[in-house]
C-alpha cells in the first residue's frame, strides 16, 4: 500500500499528464466520427456570443459588398418571376393556394459569425439555432453556391460543416449531362475543390458548370457549385477533377438555410426499400 502511494507521489505529474492527454484524445476521437455530434464546438452560448459581438463590428465593413450581392440576386429573381408571368398569361384562371402542399424546400436566412478556411477541417458558425427551427443535416447556401451542412445546433447558434472539410461529401453533377459525382476537398486551396467517383462515360471539359445533384435529401437540385478548372484522365478513368468554386469561401456573410420538407418521407421510403 505504501509503495503504491509512493509510486503515485513520485509520478504524480506524469499521471496527471496522462489523464489530461487521454481526455484530449477522447475529445479528438469523438470529433472525428462523423455521426456523433461533437461536444467541443463553437455553437454554444459563450463562444457564439463572443463571435456574435466581434462580428457585429466586422460586418459593418462588408455592408457595401453584401448590398451588391443582394441587389444582384434580386435582379436575377425578378427576371425569373417575369419569365414565369409571361408563360401563364391566360385570360382567367382559378387561384388555388397550393403553396403549402407542393412546397418542397423552405429557406431561411442567417449570418456567418465565424468562418474558417485555412485549416484542413473547417467549420463555420452562424447566428441562428434551434430556436429558429434549425437542426443538424440542413443545407447551407448563399446566392453564389453551396457552403456546407449544419452539424451541431444550440438554442441560438449553429455549427456548419464547411465543404472545405475532410468529412464533407456532397452529391454534385455536371449541368449538361446528368453524370453524378461527389464533391470533396484535398485541403490545398480554398477556392478549388475536387470531384471523385464520376463515371468514365461522362464527357468533362474545362469550363463545364457543376451543380448540386439533388440525390441527397439535403440540397435541392441545381444549386451552383463551380466550374471545372482542369482534370486528369488516366487509366480509363477520371483521376482528378478540379472545380473552381463560384463562392469566395474566405468572405461569406449572409447565408440561407435550406430545409427539405419532404426529407423524412424520402428517408423512410429509402429505408423501407433497403429493409425488404
Amino acid at each position: 500500500m505504501r509503495q503504491i502511494i509512493y509510486f503515485i507521489k513520485k509520478f504524480r505529474y506524469f499521471l496527471l499528464f496522462i489523464v489530461l492527454e487521454t481526455l484530449a484524445f477522447i475529445v479528438i476521437v469523438q470529433d472525428r466520427s462523423y455521426h456523433q455530434s461533437k461536444f467541443v464546438n463553437s455553437a454554444n452560448a459563450i463562444t457564439g456570443g463572443f463571435y456574435n459581438k466581434a462580428n457585429s463590428v466586422s460586418a459593418f465593413f462588408h455592408l457595401k459588398k453584401d448590398n451588391q450581392l443582394l441587389s444582384e440576386e434580386n435582379a436575377r429573381l425578378k427576371n425569373l418571376l417575369d419569365a414565369k408571368e409571361n408563360k401563364f398569361d391566360l385570360d382567367s384562371f382559378t387561384v388555388k393556394d397550393t403553396s403549402q402542399y407542393f412546397q418542397k424546400y423552405d429557406y431561411s436566412v442567417a449570418k456567418v459569425i465565424n468562418n474558417n478556411f485555412t485549416k484542413r477541417n473547417n467549420f463555420l458558425t452562424i447566428n441562428k439555432g434551434a430556436k429558429y427551427g434549425l437542426a443538424p443535416d440542413l443545407g447551407v447556401i448563399n446566392s453564389k453556391g453551396i457552403i456546407g451542412v449544419i452539424k451541431n445546433v444550440s438554442s441560438n447558434y449553429a455549427n456548419v460543416l464547411s465543404i472545405l472539410n475532410t468529412n464533407s461529401k456532397i452529391n454534385v453533377r455536371l449541368k449538361n449531362s446528368n453524370h453524378f459525382g461527389t464533391l470533396v476537398w484535398d485541403g490545398k486551396d480554398y477556392n478549388i475543390t475536387q470531384i471523385i467517383d464520376i463515371p468514365r462515360q461522362a464527357l468533362v471539359k474545362a469550363g463545364d458548370t457543376i451543380i448540386t445533384g439533388g440525390k441527397s435529401a439535403i440540397f435541392p437540385e441545381g444549386i451552383a457549385v463551380g466550374v471545372v478548372k482542369d482534370f486528369k484522365y488516366e487509366q480509363n478513368k477520371y483521376q482528378i477533377i478540379n472545380v473552381m468554386l463560384f463562392n469566395d469561401m474566405s468572405a461569406i456573410g449572409e447565408v440561407q438555410i435550406v430545409k427539405n420538407l419532404h426529407k423524412d418521407e424520402q428517408i423512410i421510403l429509402e429505408q423501407s426499400v433497403v429493409n425488404e
Partner: peptide, 16 residues
C-alpha cells in the same frame, strides 16, 4: 478548441 472547432487538438498539443 471550443472557439476554433478543432476538437481537442490544441488541448492535446499544449498539454504535451
Amino acid at each position: 478548441d471550443f472557439f476554433s472547432d478543432s476538437g481537442g487538438i490544441n488541448a492535446f498539443a499544449i498539454t504535451f
